[in-house]
Each structure stands twice: as C-alpha cells, then as structure tokens.
Write a protein that binds this DNA or RNA. Structure first.
Lengths: 176, 176
DNA sequence: TTTCTCATGTAACGCGTTACATGATTAC
DNA sequence: GTAATCATGTAACGCGTTACATGAGAAA
C-alpha cells in the first residue's frame, strides 16, 4: 500500500483535496500510472480515521463543496517512518519480456512486428516523461536538494527507456 | 492476467505438473518474482475448463499422485494470439523512487543510509540473476534463436540493475 | 448542443499474496 | 529427530482497476 504514503508525501508539501490529488498523480514520474478515484477517496477516509490527516470542508456557491486534507504531526511521523524502512527492490513487470520468452511460437516477421510496436510504445513513453519534465508540474520547487532529487528521478526514468530502445535495436538487427 | 499466458508458454515446451511449474517460475527472469501455489493451481483448473490444456493423472506408490498438464491445439492458438497482441509499456513500480520523491523529510545521513541499503539490495538482485543465468535452469535449449532471446533477456535485466547502481553512485556523490 | 471542469463518491471485480492444511518419504 | 522434498490444494485478505453515478457551470 504505497498509495497511502504517496498521498501522505504529497500532503507533506501542502494541503490538497481529493480532486487535486487525483490530478497531481500523473505529474509525478514515480507514480504517474496510478491514483484513480476509488483508491484516493478511500485512502483519504482511512487516513482521516487514523488521524494522520485533518479535514476541513469548504462550501462553495457555484461548485460542489471541497474537502481539504491537511497532514497532522502524527501523519508526518508515519511518513518519515516509512521513508526510513528498508528499501525494496524494484518490481519491473514487463509483459513484453514474458512474450519474448515464449516468442518461439512466432516467425521472424511476427517478432519484428512486435519489436517495432514495442519500440513505438517506448518512444511515446519517453515523450510523456520529457513533456512532464518540461512542463514541470507537480514538482515541489522548494529546496535545492529536492529539486536535484526530482531531476535525478526524471533522468533515471528517461535513461531506462533509452536503454530499452538500444536493446530493442540490437534485437531488431539480430533477429533474422 | 499474464500468469495464464506464462503457464501456457511453459506448457508449450512440454507437459508440466503444477508442482513443477511452481518450481520453474523462479528460474525465468521475466517472472521470477511470481508464481505461488494458489495462482498456479487455480489457473491450471481454469485452463482445463477452457480446454486449453488436458490433464492426465499419474498415480504413484510412494508419492502423491501427479496431475500432468499438456497444452492443446486450442491452447497453442490462445498463446500465439496473445503473443501477437499489442505490446504494453513496462510497468516499473519502484517504491524506492517514491520514497526519494519525498525524501525532503530526511537529513543527508538518513538519505545516504537509504541509498546504501538500496545499493546493497540491487547488488544482491544482480547476483541472483547472474546465478540464474549461470546455472541456466528453466531455459528451453531448443533452437538457436530461442537461446539468443533468453540471453538477451538476461542481459537486459542485468543492464537495468547496473544502470541503477551507477545512478545510485551519482546520488551518493552529490547528496551532501 | 455537446463536451469539459469542478468535486464527490460507490460497486464489482480481478489479480496476486500470505498463510494454513495434509501426509508420506527421504536426506542430514 | 528434524528438516526438506514430493504433491496437492483452500481461505482470507489486500491492493488496484474499470465502470458507474450525480449535478451544476463553463467553454467549444
């Protein structure tokens, strides 16, 4: 349940509503894939029950009323404890690799087709991240160190995809 | 549900029992993290219902009787169709990256500690894969092309971890 | 007029994990 | 005597996804 801590992390910057959180997620490279309605609203209720956040309701005339969540001292503590837990290894689930593992069922044209499609997929992934980085939404922009960390994270992601591309190229050359 | 296709993929080599499949999974780099009892036995029943596999029961004297699963024509078809579906982008869930994103809560010693622990984690991950590759279990060893693919997959995994190490080194140097 | 934004939420499902359960045999 | 291997399975839970639902106001 890293979503819980992701939300706490975001709330450690400043208060958010559920709706804002939902929009913030796609801007954070480490978790841009995640954060749908259901999870966020449910987790927020849970965090509130655990007294890790407080909630203020702001009534608006022309729009539905907002619920603004603020992190508590206890919440900051919980976040920090999590940050200090032992790091887990990354879990990369690459369905394409599984496919390749059993690609002997395919002829070379079919494999080449898949490689090409995968390459395109990776390329658009790179575009997305570069766009994210350029627009620079959802970044904290507070301390120098934090800015550096965010840049490094972006770079790591891009480098991952670039390496994937090189790897694909080599495969394309050798599958014949 | 890629486990379904992973199992079909394995069965496309030769028949397996559930127990053997369970042991085979950790030897396959693309899915070494997966494949627990529950999933495998449940999926096998499901595959059988869908007539994608057949099942022979082999009674043994001194051991519990085996259920040997063999892929059917329909199963091979299903597998091949899956292999030809459009590739999905890799989903890398790296909890450590999420942590780093919010690491501003930590002082430099604490971050350095986390980086060191993560580095060790990655190193042992590399050892595991290299060991896998060396022992060379669970590889098909049939055609030349298949052997090549498996080697490329191993290489990609190792390169991913190596790049992660370099990235960590840079962080270690600059966080002060 | 249709679509988008603001803002909240629920229902149902799917995939995967951990832990539990059995029971004989063989290796240390 | 203890642990591991062979071989099967079930129960319960957790996390996440997709889709559904409401309802007003602003923009295309």
């Amino acid at each position: 349940m890293s979503i819980k801590y992701a939300i706490l992390g975001l709330l450690s910057w400043h208060p958010y509503t559920g709706y804002e959180l939902k929009k913030a997620f796609p801007n954070i490279p480490a978790l841009y894939w995640s954060g749908n309605n259901n999870q966020i609203y449910r987790t927020l209720v849970q965090l509130h029950n655990e007294k890790l956040v407080t909630r203020q309701i702001e009534i608006q005339d022309n729009y539905p009323s907002k619920k603004i969540y603020t992190i508590t001292e206890k919440g900051l503590h919980e976040l920090k404890n999590w940050l200090l837990t032992v790091p887990e290894p990354p879990q990369l689930k690459n369905t394409f690799m599984i496919k390749l593992s059993f690609a002997d069922q395919l002829n070379k044209e079919e494999i080449q087709k898949q490689l090409l499609d995968y390459k395109n997929e990776i390329n658009s992934q790179i575009l997305i991240i570069k766009e994210l980085q350029k627009r620079g939404n959802g970044k904290p922009k507070r301390g120098k160190r934090e800015t550096y960390l965010w840049e490094m994270i972006h770079r790591r992601w891009i480098s991952y995809y670039s390496n994937e591309l090189e790897w694909i190229k080599e495969l394309q050359k050798n599958i014949k």
